[in-house]
């Protein structure tokens, strides 16, 4: 590999896994995440599931450098994310917040260009490299023909694909998604999750928080079940999801069926 002087070129867009060690984080008077360990390989989709308030969002925020952990480390590849400058960290980890805020009247292309900010600086303005990254992000998410449209005039599903394009344009090896389907109907939700699988297939490490256990079971390579700030189960959905787990996480009785295609677990709550 040829050595380049810019740190941008030196950080590859793919191939770095994410490691979380003994991560503890919380708020004054409350521990939200208590000693979580995770090992996420590149090229896979990992989904964190769990009841409201189980600490999954705080965990994601601690990984994304939005919430300072009390102890523990987050590594993207070999680098401790919290030791990097904010800009360097943004070369390694991209985040799509749960309900992202869009600038007024922004166009799709304008939004996706924001993804290039970590790679730009006072003396490094818009480059061909940026243009290429934006173009490929638009194409990968099927939003290229929307590029000139205003974001606020698109449907929810289209909008979410545009946000995903922004995150992809950042060209980070690690991509974090906070409830990427929460505002979407079933069809558009599935569309976004299929897209997420493609992103991981391209070699990135994807970690997402999902509310929907069924969707998580179907689209994630690995499920991480959290309760009360701790990881209670971790592994392929097929092995992890059980009536006991559903009971432990959500406090309800449920049967687990198998999906006809791939045997992935389907959770069917029992009626009282």
């Amino acid at each position: 590999m040829t050595k380049t002087t810019t740190d941008v070129a030196a950080s590859p867009a793919t191939g770095l896994g994410l490691t979380v060690e003994a991560l503890t984080a919380g708020y004054p008077g409350r521990t939200a995440v208590a000693g979580v360990d995770l090992e996420l390989p590149a090229g896979e989709v990992t989904a964190i599931v769990g009841p409201n308030g189980c600490g999954k969002s705080t965990l994601l925020r601690a990984i994304a450098r939005l919430h300072k952990p009390d102890s523990g480390t987050v590594r993207a590849g070999d680098a401790d994310v919290w030791q990097l400058t904010r800009r360097r960290a943004a070369h390694r980890i991209a985040l799509l917040p749960q309900s992202p805020q869009a600038p007024e009247a922004v166009t799709v292309a304008g939004l996706v260009r924001y993804g290039r900010h970590p790679h730009q600086g006072l003396f490094r303005q818009w480059s061909r490299e940026d243009e290429r990254a934006v173009r490929s992000a638009l194409e990968a998410t099927g939003t290229a023909e929307l590029a000139g449209r205003r974001l606020d005039q698109l449907s929810g599903g289209q909008r979410q694909r545009c946000w995903l394009a922004m995150v992809l344009a950042q060209e980070t090896p690690v991509v974090l998604l906070d409830e990427p389907t929460s505002a979407l109907d079933l069809g558009h939700g599935v569309e976004v999750l299929e897209l997420v699988r493609e992103v991981a297939a391209g070699g990135r490490t994807v970690l997402m928080v999902l509310h929907d256990l069924a969707a998580a079971a179907r689209y994630a390579d690995t499920l991480v079940a959290m309760n009360d700030g701790r990881v209670v189960a971790q592994g392929p959905a097929r092995e992890v999801v059980s009536s006991e787990l559903v009971k432990e996480l959500y406090g309800i009785e449920a049967d687990i069926l198998r999906a006809p295609g791939d045997d992935s677990p389907v959770v069917v709550p029992r009626r009282g």
Partner: peptide, 23 residues
Amino acid sequence: FACVRPLSALALGDDGARALGHR
């Protein structure tokens, strides 16, 4: 004019701006 890019990123909200490497 040096603040143009970070300032425009503030329109993404503070978390959005931070995720892009701004302070």
